[in-house]
Amino acid sequence: MENILQIDTDFIENNTVFSELIEALKNGFCNNKTLIPMRHHHDFPNPEVNADSTLLLMPAWNPSKDAGVKIVTVSPENGKFKLPSIQGTYIYFDAVKGSIKAILEAKSLTVKRTAAASALASYFLSRKDSSSMLMIGTGALSINLIKAHAAVRPIKQVFVWGRNIEKAQAIASALKHENFSVKAIKSIEEKIAEVDIISSATLSKTPLVFGKYLNPGQHIDLVGAYKKDMREADDKTISKSSVFIDTFQGGLKESGDIVIPINKGILNKEAIKADLFQLCSNNKIGRTSENEITVFKSVGHALEDLAAAGYYYNKFKNE
Protein backbone atom coordinates (compact mmCIF):
# COMPACT_ATOMS: atom_id res chain seq x y z
CA MET A 1 0.00 0.00 0.00
CA GLU A 2 1.30 3.43 -0.94
CA ASN A 3 2.07 5.87 1.83
CA ILE A 4 -0.72 8.38 2.36
CA LEU A 5 0.70 11.88 2.37
CA GLN A 6 -0.42 14.19 5.16
CA ILE A 7 -0.53 17.76 3.85
CA ASP A 8 -1.13 20.09 6.76
CA THR A 9 -2.01 23.72 7.28
CA ASP A 10 1.60 24.87 7.52
CA PHE A 11 2.51 23.36 4.15
CA ILE A 12 -0.51 24.92 2.43
CA GLU A 13 0.08 28.30 4.06
CA ASN A 14 3.79 28.37 3.21
CA ASN A 15 3.64 27.01 -0.32
CA THR A 16 0.82 28.91 -1.98
CA VAL A 17 1.68 31.08 -4.95
CA PHE A 18 -1.65 32.60 -5.90
CA SER A 19 -0.77 33.18 -9.54
CA GLU A 20 -0.05 29.43 -9.83
CA LEU A 21 -3.15 28.35 -7.92
CA ILE A 22 -5.36 30.66 -9.99
CA GLU A 23 -3.93 29.08 -13.15
CA ALA A 24 -4.62 25.59 -11.75
CA LEU A 25 -8.26 26.54 -11.16
CA LYS A 26 -8.53 28.08 -14.61
CA ASN A 27 -7.26 24.86 -16.16
CA GLY A 28 -9.77 22.91 -14.08
CA PHE A 29 -12.70 25.00 -15.29
CA CYS A 30 -11.48 24.65 -18.89
CA ASN A 31 -11.46 20.85 -18.56
CA ASN A 32 -14.88 19.43 -19.44
CA LYS A 33 -13.93 15.89 -18.34
CA THR A 34 -14.29 16.48 -14.60
CA LEU A 35 -17.45 15.00 -13.08
CA ILE A 36 -18.97 17.00 -10.25
CA PRO A 37 -22.22 15.83 -8.64
CA MET A 38 -24.26 18.33 -6.67
CA ARG A 39 -22.71 18.68 -3.26
CA HIS A 40 -24.48 17.33 -0.19
CA HIS A 41 -25.57 20.20 2.04
CA HIS A 42 -27.03 19.19 5.40
CA ASP A 43 -28.01 21.65 8.13
CA PHE A 44 -28.21 20.17 11.60
CA PRO A 45 -29.20 21.71 14.94
CA ASN A 46 -26.57 22.83 17.40
CA PRO A 47 -28.66 23.69 20.49
CA GLU A 48 -25.67 24.47 22.69
CA VAL A 49 -25.05 27.65 20.69
CA ASN A 50 -28.66 28.10 19.51
CA ALA A 51 -27.68 28.04 15.83
CA ASP A 52 -27.55 25.47 13.05
CA SER A 53 -24.30 24.00 11.83
CA THR A 54 -23.82 22.65 8.30
CA LEU A 55 -22.19 19.49 6.96
CA LEU A 56 -20.90 19.70 3.39
CA LEU A 57 -19.74 16.74 1.28
CA MET A 58 -18.13 17.80 -1.99
CA PRO A 59 -16.95 15.02 -4.35
CA ALA A 60 -15.31 15.32 -7.77
CA TRP A 61 -13.75 12.91 -10.26
CA ASN A 62 -11.41 13.41 -13.18
CA PRO A 63 -11.74 9.91 -14.72
CA SER A 64 -8.53 7.86 -14.79
CA LYS A 65 -6.61 10.78 -13.29
CA ASP A 66 -7.62 11.88 -9.81
CA ALA A 67 -10.58 12.17 -7.50
CA GLY A 68 -11.41 13.62 -4.13
CA VAL A 69 -14.02 14.49 -1.59
CA LYS A 70 -14.11 17.28 0.94
CA ILE A 71 -15.87 16.76 4.26
CA VAL A 72 -16.49 20.04 6.03
CA THR A 73 -18.54 21.44 8.88
CA VAL A 74 -19.48 25.12 9.07
CA SER A 75 -20.34 26.37 12.57
CA PRO A 76 -21.01 30.12 12.46
CA GLU A 77 -20.86 30.49 16.26
CA ASN A 78 -17.35 29.03 16.60
CA GLY A 79 -16.03 32.46 17.48
CA LYS A 80 -17.34 31.76 20.98
CA PHE A 81 -14.81 28.96 21.23
CA LYS A 82 -12.03 30.92 19.49
CA LEU A 83 -12.17 28.48 16.59
CA PRO A 84 -12.62 29.03 12.82
CA SER A 85 -16.15 28.50 11.54
CA ILE A 86 -14.90 26.01 8.92
CA GLN A 87 -13.45 22.64 9.99
CA GLY A 88 -12.76 19.59 7.85
CA THR A 89 -10.55 17.39 5.73
CA TYR A 90 -9.96 16.61 2.06
CA ILE A 91 -9.31 13.06 0.86
CA TYR A 92 -7.39 12.92 -2.44
CA PHE A 93 -7.65 9.65 -4.39
CA ASP A 94 -5.97 7.88 -7.26
CA ALA A 95 -8.92 7.69 -9.66
CA VAL A 96 -7.67 4.50 -11.34
CA LYS A 97 -6.86 2.35 -8.31
CA GLY A 98 -9.13 4.01 -5.79
CA SER A 99 -6.32 4.32 -3.27
CA ILE A 100 -5.88 7.37 -1.09
CA LYS A 101 -2.94 9.50 -2.20
CA ALA A 102 -3.19 12.27 0.38
CA ILE A 103 -5.21 13.77 3.19
CA LEU A 104 -5.19 17.56 3.18
CA GLU A 105 -6.28 19.98 5.88
CA ALA A 106 -9.52 21.34 4.43
CA LYS A 107 -9.83 24.74 6.09
CA SER A 108 -6.66 26.12 4.53
CA LEU A 109 -7.38 24.35 1.24
CA THR A 110 -10.85 25.93 1.17
CA VAL A 111 -9.63 29.39 2.06
CA LYS A 112 -6.90 29.35 -0.61
CA ARG A 113 -9.03 27.95 -3.42
CA THR A 114 -11.93 30.29 -2.58
CA ALA A 115 -9.67 33.32 -2.76
CA ALA A 116 -8.14 32.02 -5.99
CA ALA A 117 -11.62 31.54 -7.53
CA SER A 118 -12.54 35.15 -6.72
CA ALA A 119 -9.31 36.38 -8.27
CA LEU A 120 -9.91 34.20 -11.33
CA ALA A 121 -13.32 35.83 -11.73
CA SER A 122 -11.77 39.27 -11.19
CA TYR A 123 -9.37 38.56 -14.07
CA PHE A 124 -12.41 38.46 -16.37
CA LEU A 125 -14.65 40.96 -14.61
CA SER A 126 -12.73 43.81 -12.94
CA ARG A 127 -11.12 46.62 -14.89
CA LYS A 128 -7.54 45.78 -15.79
CA ASP A 129 -6.29 48.98 -14.13
CA SER A 130 -8.06 48.29 -10.82
CA SER A 131 -5.74 49.61 -8.12
CA SER A 132 -7.90 49.96 -5.00
CA MET A 133 -9.91 47.46 -2.99
CA LEU A 134 -12.31 47.37 -0.06
CA MET A 135 -12.28 44.17 1.99
CA ILE A 136 -15.47 43.66 4.01
CA GLY A 137 -14.95 41.05 6.70
CA THR A 138 -12.02 40.06 8.89
CA GLY A 139 -12.17 36.26 8.88
CA ALA A 140 -9.62 33.77 7.59
CA LEU A 141 -10.55 34.56 3.99
CA SER A 142 -9.79 38.27 4.16
CA ILE A 143 -6.00 38.23 3.94
CA ASN A 144 -6.14 35.58 1.25
CA LEU A 145 -8.70 37.44 -0.83
CA ILE A 146 -6.56 40.57 -0.70
CA LYS A 147 -3.44 38.68 -1.78
CA ALA A 148 -5.28 36.78 -4.50
CA HIS A 149 -6.85 39.89 -6.03
CA ALA A 150 -3.43 41.57 -5.91
CA ALA A 151 -2.05 38.66 -7.95
CA VAL A 152 -4.24 39.57 -10.95
CA ARG A 153 -4.63 43.33 -10.63
CA PRO A 154 -2.19 46.19 -9.79
CA ILE A 155 -3.60 46.80 -6.32
CA LYS A 156 -1.99 49.75 -4.52
CA GLN A 157 -4.51 50.57 -1.77
CA VAL A 158 -6.60 48.26 0.38
CA PHE A 159 -9.18 49.26 2.98
CA VAL A 160 -10.47 46.74 5.51
CA TRP A 161 -13.75 46.93 7.43
CA GLY A 162 -14.99 44.58 10.12
CA ARG A 163 -17.47 44.76 12.96
CA ASN A 164 -14.42 44.73 15.24
CA ILE A 165 -12.00 47.49 14.24
CA GLU A 166 -9.16 45.76 16.09
CA LYS A 167 -9.47 42.72 13.81
CA ALA A 168 -9.34 45.01 10.78
CA GLN A 169 -6.23 46.66 12.20
CA ALA A 170 -4.67 43.22 12.75
CA ILE A 171 -5.14 42.42 9.06
CA ALA A 172 -3.51 45.72 8.11
CA SER A 173 -0.59 44.89 10.38
CA ALA A 174 -0.24 41.36 8.95
CA LEU A 175 0.02 42.79 5.43
CA LYS A 176 2.32 45.68 6.20
CA HIS A 177 5.19 44.22 4.16
CA GLU A 178 3.18 43.78 0.95
CA ASN A 179 3.54 46.01 -2.11
CA PHE A 180 0.31 47.81 -1.32
CA SER A 181 -0.93 49.87 1.61
CA VAL A 182 -3.62 48.51 3.93
CA LYS A 183 -5.77 50.64 6.21
CA ALA A 184 -8.53 49.69 8.65
CA ILE A 185 -11.66 51.84 8.36
CA LYS A 186 -14.57 52.37 10.75
CA SER A 187 -17.41 52.34 8.21
CA ILE A 188 -18.02 50.77 4.81
CA GLU A 189 -19.46 54.06 3.53
CA GLU A 190 -16.07 55.76 3.93
CA LYS A 191 -14.61 54.03 0.86
CA ILE A 192 -17.21 51.89 -0.92
CA ALA A 193 -17.93 54.51 -3.59
CA GLU A 194 -14.24 55.14 -4.33
CA VAL A 195 -12.61 51.73 -4.72
CA ASP A 196 -12.31 49.64 -7.89
CA ILE A 197 -12.96 46.25 -6.28
CA ILE A 198 -15.23 45.44 -3.33
CA SER A 199 -14.79 41.99 -1.81
CA SER A 200 -17.12 40.78 0.93
CA ALA A 201 -16.61 37.59 2.95
CA THR A 202 -18.97 37.55 5.91
CA LEU A 203 -21.74 35.47 7.45
CA SER A 204 -24.13 38.41 7.39
CA LYS A 205 -27.85 37.80 7.03
CA THR A 206 -28.47 41.41 6.03
CA PRO A 207 -26.84 43.39 3.20
CA LEU A 208 -23.57 45.20 3.73
CA VAL A 209 -23.07 46.32 0.11
CA PHE A 210 -25.70 48.86 -0.95
CA GLY A 211 -26.26 49.69 -4.59
CA LYS A 212 -26.90 53.36 -3.87
CA TYR A 213 -23.18 53.78 -3.14
CA LEU A 214 -21.87 51.99 -6.25
CA ASN A 215 -20.33 53.79 -9.19
CA PRO A 216 -19.72 52.81 -12.83
CA GLY A 217 -16.79 50.47 -13.42
CA GLN A 218 -16.70 48.80 -10.02
CA HIS A 219 -16.44 45.05 -9.46
CA ILE A 220 -18.16 43.38 -6.49
CA ASP A 221 -16.92 40.02 -5.24
CA LEU A 222 -19.45 38.29 -2.96
CA VAL A 223 -17.88 35.35 -1.14
CA GLY A 224 -19.85 34.89 2.08
CA ALA A 225 -23.60 34.36 2.62
CA TYR A 226 -23.56 30.64 1.89
CA LYS A 227 -27.19 30.01 2.91
CA LYS A 228 -30.48 31.02 1.29
CA ASP A 229 -31.33 33.35 4.18
CA MET A 230 -27.99 35.15 4.08
CA ARG A 231 -26.97 37.98 1.80
CA GLU A 232 -24.21 40.55 1.54
CA ALA A 233 -25.56 42.76 -1.27
CA ASP A 234 -28.93 44.46 -1.52
CA ASP A 235 -31.45 44.35 -4.35
CA LYS A 236 -30.21 47.57 -5.93
CA THR A 237 -26.68 46.17 -6.18
CA ILE A 238 -28.03 43.22 -8.14
CA SER A 239 -30.40 45.25 -10.32
CA LYS A 240 -27.75 47.75 -11.47
CA SER A 241 -25.03 45.15 -12.12
CA SER A 242 -24.08 42.44 -14.58
CA VAL A 243 -24.23 39.26 -12.52
CA PHE A 244 -21.84 36.30 -12.81
CA ILE A 245 -21.58 33.16 -10.65
CA ASP A 246 -18.98 30.49 -10.05
CA THR A 247 -21.29 27.68 -11.24
CA PHE A 248 -24.92 27.54 -12.23
CA GLN A 249 -25.18 24.20 -10.41
CA GLY A 250 -24.75 25.71 -6.95
CA GLY A 251 -25.06 29.42 -7.54
CA LEU A 252 -28.75 29.33 -8.39
CA LYS A 253 -29.68 27.30 -5.34
CA GLU A 254 -27.56 28.01 -2.30
CA SER A 255 -27.05 31.70 -1.59
CA GLY A 256 -29.50 34.41 -0.67
CA ASP A 257 -27.53 36.89 -2.78
CA ILE A 258 -28.92 35.12 -5.86
CA VAL A 259 -31.94 33.16 -4.59
CA ILE A 260 -33.70 36.10 -2.89
CA PRO A 261 -33.50 38.50 -5.89
CA ILE A 262 -34.71 35.70 -8.19
CA ASN A 263 -37.66 34.93 -5.92
CA LYS A 264 -38.53 38.64 -5.72
CA GLY A 265 -38.41 39.03 -9.51
CA ILE A 266 -35.46 41.42 -9.35
CA LEU A 267 -33.10 39.00 -11.09
CA ASN A 268 -34.03 36.67 -13.92
CA LYS A 269 -32.06 33.42 -14.11
CA GLU A 270 -31.55 33.99 -17.83
CA ALA A 271 -30.03 37.41 -17.09
CA ILE A 272 -27.05 35.89 -15.29
CA LYS A 273 -24.24 36.46 -17.76
CA ALA A 274 -21.95 33.46 -17.24
CA ASP A 275 -20.24 31.12 -14.81
CA LEU A 276 -16.56 30.28 -14.47
CA PHE A 277 -16.85 27.30 -16.83
CA GLN A 278 -18.05 29.60 -19.60
CA LEU A 279 -15.58 32.40 -18.83
CA CYS A 280 -12.53 30.14 -18.63
CA SER A 281 -13.41 28.29 -21.84
CA ASN A 282 -14.07 31.60 -23.64
CA ASN A 283 -17.65 30.59 -24.41
CA LYS A 284 -18.84 33.81 -22.77
CA ILE A 285 -17.16 37.13 -22.20
CA GLY A 286 -16.85 38.97 -18.92
CA ARG A 287 -16.70 42.75 -18.61
CA THR A 288 -17.86 44.48 -21.79
CA SER A 289 -17.18 48.14 -20.93
CA GLU A 290 -15.25 50.37 -18.56
CA ASN A 291 -18.50 51.64 -17.03
CA GLU A 292 -20.16 48.28 -16.39
CA ILE A 293 -20.68 47.28 -12.76
CA THR A 294 -19.98 43.57 -12.33
CA VAL A 295 -20.99 41.23 -9.51
CA PHE A 296 -19.45 37.81 -8.95
CA LYS A 297 -21.17 35.45 -6.53
CA SER A 298 -19.14 32.52 -5.23
CA VAL A 299 -20.67 29.59 -3.35
CA GLY A 300 -17.74 27.19 -3.82
CA HIS A 301 -17.42 24.15 -6.04
CA ALA A 302 -15.86 20.70 -5.73
CA LEU A 303 -13.84 21.26 -8.91
CA GLU A 304 -11.98 24.05 -7.13
CA ASP A 305 -11.09 21.68 -4.29
CA LEU A 306 -9.89 18.95 -6.66
CA ALA A 307 -7.77 21.37 -8.67
CA ALA A 308 -6.26 22.83 -5.49
CA ALA A 309 -5.64 19.38 -3.98
CA GLY A 310 -3.75 18.37 -7.11
CA TYR A 311 -1.76 21.60 -6.96
CA TYR A 312 -0.65 21.03 -3.35
CA TYR A 313 -0.11 17.29 -3.85
CA ASN A 314 2.29 17.92 -6.74
CA LYS A 315 4.11 20.61 -4.76
CA PHE A 316 4.46 18.26 -1.79
CA LYS A 317 5.73 15.40 -3.96
CA ASN A 318 8.27 17.65 -5.69
CA GLU A 319 9.76 19.12 -2.53
Rank of each mutant, 00 (worst) to 15 (best):
Q87L: 11
P154F: 08
I22K: 00
K112M: 13
V160P: 10
F316A: 09
A119L: 00
Y92W: 08
A172E: 00
N263L: 05
S242V: 06
N179D: 15
L134E: 05
V243H: 01
V195R: 03
G256D: 08
K228Y: 01
I285C: 14
A308H: 02
R231I: 00
N32A: 07
Y90M: 06
I238W: 01
T110M: 05
I7R: 05
G68W: 02
K269G: 09
N15W: 06
G68A: 00
E319H: 13
S173Q: 11
I272D: 06
G250F: 05
Q249H: 11
V17K: 14
V74W: 08
V158Y: 06
I71S: 01
L306Y: 03
Q87M: 13
Q278A: 14
E232C: 09
M58P: 02
A274T: 04
I185R: 12
K317E: 12
E194W: 08
H177R: 10
S64T: 15
S108E: 02
A307N: 05
A140G: 15
V158A: 06
A184K: 10
I22H: 08
L104Q: 06
S255Y: 05
D235I: 02
F93N: 01
N268R: 11
F180L: 08
F248Y: 15
K80H: 13
H149L: 02
R163Y: 11
Q278E: 15
T34R: 13
H149R: 04
G251D: 04
L141H: 09
Y92I: 05
K264C: 09
K70L: 02
S173W: 03
I143S: 10
E105N: 07
T73P: 08
S130R: 05
K156L: 05
I260C: 11
L21E: 10
A102Q: 03
I192T: 04
I103F: 13
E254Q: 09
G68E: 07
N46Q: 12
F296G: 03
N283F: 12
S64H: 14
Y311V: 00
D129N: 04
S85E: 12
S131T: 07
V209C: 00
S126A: 11
K156P: 03
N263Y: 09
A168R: 06
K167N: 12
I165M: 12
G137Q: 01
E304A: 08
F159C: 08
I7F: 01
I4K: 03
S200K: 02
F11W: 07
N179R: 11
D305A: 14
F244G: 01
S239T: 14
Q157K: 12
S131W: 03
K212D: 14
S118E: 12
V160W: 03
P37V: 14
K315S: 09
S132Q: 00
K97D: 14
A225I: 04
I146Q: 07
P59C: 06
E232D: 13
K186C: 15
N78P: 09
F316P: 01
S19E: 04
L134V: 11
G224T: 11
E194V: 13
F11Q: 03
A51E: 15
I146V: 03
K227M: 12
T206S: 13
L125E: 01
I185E: 13
L109R: 04
T202L: 05
I197P: 00
K205T: 00
I220W: 04
E319V: 04
P47V: 10
E77R: 13
